[in-house]
Nucleic acid binder design. Structure first.
Lengths: 154, 154
DNA sequence: GTTCAACCTCGACCATGCTGGAGGTCAAGC
DNA sequence: GCTTGACCTCCAGCATGGTCGAGGTTGAAC
């Protein structure tokens, strides 16, 4: 019957998670993880931080920003075990994001693959031709976008 | 029978591609696109640059770095129409990269989704528990990685 | 009670992927 | 031949996602 939660030091978290201590402080700064402090001002982490970190790192590997991750994790309670509905909310919002990214990747890959099939020497009818659709809402810059990819060479 | 290739100015490329001229110079600097110069030192682009740009932007949106893109595009010839085998090489290398990313996204999503199913109140048997595998080779930092996610709260 | 690794803060610095401005040149239209 | 917008180079700056080091404190072991 452990009443004391057995907190982890930053060094232990770094070692166990594989995340450098510098990054741990950085994540804390950005609100992705939390710690409590000892009387001497040292960080102590709940074990649950390890799972959060695994989450963060995995999400980053697939191209999500720390801000995305922070927003998602913000839906989970800091101080209690997440309920099923906590999970459902997080999961739903992530799923949409992940689905969108998977979809974009598929389209990119399939277009490329399609180009092998079509030979791509005459691109006028090639699937790649319409790839431009993708940038319609891409960041700042010139307004947009007469779809002007004519047949020719890449 | 057009003998003159009808080159585009940087402003035209910016407008048609939606990529700001500042970014175009940046990409050229990094070797992702090429231009020729007029007698007066102004850039002129082949129309094919539009397709390269569409490619670059789409790839970026799915999380590939400019370096990745540059390496991939480097396999295409600058000065002639790509042959089928040029395309096949590019396509193969990209496909592997994209497949890997799609896979990572699927696993992340499915694990999350799986957690709804399992309730995730007792995580000891949850798929998320093993998510740590993913970071085994993740960048610099502490060596690695006793797999220490115990049952508990996220 | 001293030692010494591990911890703290703060600020500088790095890479990537750009944007924006200064100061000057080019080129097409009148 | 002059105007004017589009172009040029170079360099500073910004956001993100960190790392590194200086200078000081903590805490567990001896």
């Amino acid at each position: 019957m452990s009443k004391l939660p057995e907190m982890l030091t930053i060094g232990q978290v770094a070692e166990r998670s594989g995340v450098p201590h510098t990054a741990l402080r950085f994540y804390e700064d950005r609100g992705l993880i939390a710690s409590v402090r000892t009387a001497g001002n040292q960080r102590r982490y709940q074990r649950s931080v390890l799972r959060r970190l695994a989450f963060i790192r995995t999400a980053q590997r697939v191209g999500l920003s720390l801000e995305d991750v922070r927003d998602a994790l913000a839906q989970l309670p800091d101080n209690r075990t997440p309920t099923k509905s906590d999970w459902e909310r997080l999961s739903r919002s992530w799923k949409a994001e992940l689905d969108a990214r998977i979809d974009a990747l598929y389209r990119l890959r399939d277009r490329l693959t399609g180009c092998i099939g079509c030979g791509c020497l005459s691109l006028r009818s090639c699937a790649l031709q319409n790839i431009d659709d993708e940038q319609a809402s891409h960041g700042p810059g010139a307004p947009q976008l007469k779809p002007v990819v004519e047949g020719g060479t890449l």
